[in-house]
Design a protein around this nucleic acid. Structure first.
Length: 284
DNA sequence: TACCAGGGCCTTT
DNA sequence: AAAGGCCATGGT
């Protein structure tokens, strides 16, 4: 871990708030760059989300990240990993400075980071994300969780396990209103439940084997597979190519993405994607 | 190979 | 208010 951004200082305040130093964690960049769908900014600036079957609220106070409603134990066993707090992003950003487009993207949003999300939720979410826009994706996932997840004390629902979906029919999924994606979600759930696709193995398999395994699911192509591997299995060398990224590659990397940065290609892609989307004509 | 369905949100007109 | 663009995958 990097010395100067080591996030080891952890203290507790009243009502189970855990405080951790995280100078390069920018919630709006982290939660609004398309990698996750269950985090929302509340009017008071606090971010509320559900992951690992738990509700969590969070806010940034200067360089400190405050996890509201978390215990020290949860911090160490769950959230430190989920928020990727032990990765040396200072070193990563430094490596990116050698590349002009990346240096610009890093300067624009230095607090952008990857979350380490759960494999099934990530796979299922990105199946639902295909040919779709973010507001609608969030609505679909919300309805899926409400209909088939488990209630969480204090409000909200867990993301439904594959076991909760595998036995359903397309008709039973109708209230979720995910259209033609319903049959894709059901095929994914069934293949995970019957062991055809072993999610826990995907983080260690040769990358092409992992991609091929995911793409045996009806409705999972190269883009969805790479999103599931990058965001849900920690495969940082995965580089999901959508329309935006295709545009970026054509515009800035006519000779291909630098070989030396390939092992961190997924993180690079997030910086480039975030910069480009925030500078698109329609978002000005 | 090229094209198109699907559906809801968005921007532009 | 209405029209048109967008989008990942599978099917034709």
């Amino acid at each position: 871990m990097g010395p100067e951004n080591a996030m080891t200082a952890t203290t507790t305040t009243a009502q189970h708030t855990v405080l951790v130093s995280a100078p390069d964690f920018d919630p709006s960049a982290v939660f609004e760059n398309g990698q996750c769908f269950r985090w929302e900014r509340q009017p008071d600036g606090v971010w509320a989300g559900i992951a690992h079957g738990r509700r969590l609220r969070l806010r940034k106070d200067g360089e400190d990240l405050l996890l509201i409603g978390a215990s020290i134990d949860e911090m160490d066993t769950l959230w430190r990993r989920y928020f990727d707090l032990d990765r040396d992003y200072t070193a990563i950003r430094t490596a990116f400075l050698q590349d002009t487009p990346l240096a610009r993207a890093v300067a624009f949003a230095p607090g952008l980071r990857l979350l380490r999300q759960e494999p099934w939720e990530t796979l299922c979410s990105f199946i639902l994300s295909q040919n779709n826009n973010i507001p609608r994706i969030k609505g679909i996932i919300d309805r899926l969780c409400t209909a088939f997840g488990t209630p969480i004390p204090g409000g909200g629902f867990t993301f439904p396990l594959p076991e909760a979906l595998a036995g359903l029919s397309v008709e039973e999924l109708a209230p979720v209103r995910c259209g033609f994606r319903a049959k894709y979600v059901l095929d994914a759930a069934r293949k995970v439940v019957d062991g055809t696709v072993q999610l826990e193995q995907l983080s260690a398999m040769p990358l092409d084997d992992a991609r091929a395994a995911l793409q045996t699911i009806h409705g999972v192509g190269p883009k969805v597979a790479d999103c599931a591997l990058l965001f849900g299995c920690g495969r940082l060398d995965c580089f999901p190519v959508d329309v935006w990224v295709r545009r970026i590659l054509a515009a800035y990397y006519p000779n291909g993405f630098p070989e030396a940065l390939r092992p961190l290609g997924g993180i690079a892609q997030q910086f480039l994607f975030h910069y480009e989307r925030c500078h698109a004509a329609s978002s000005k």
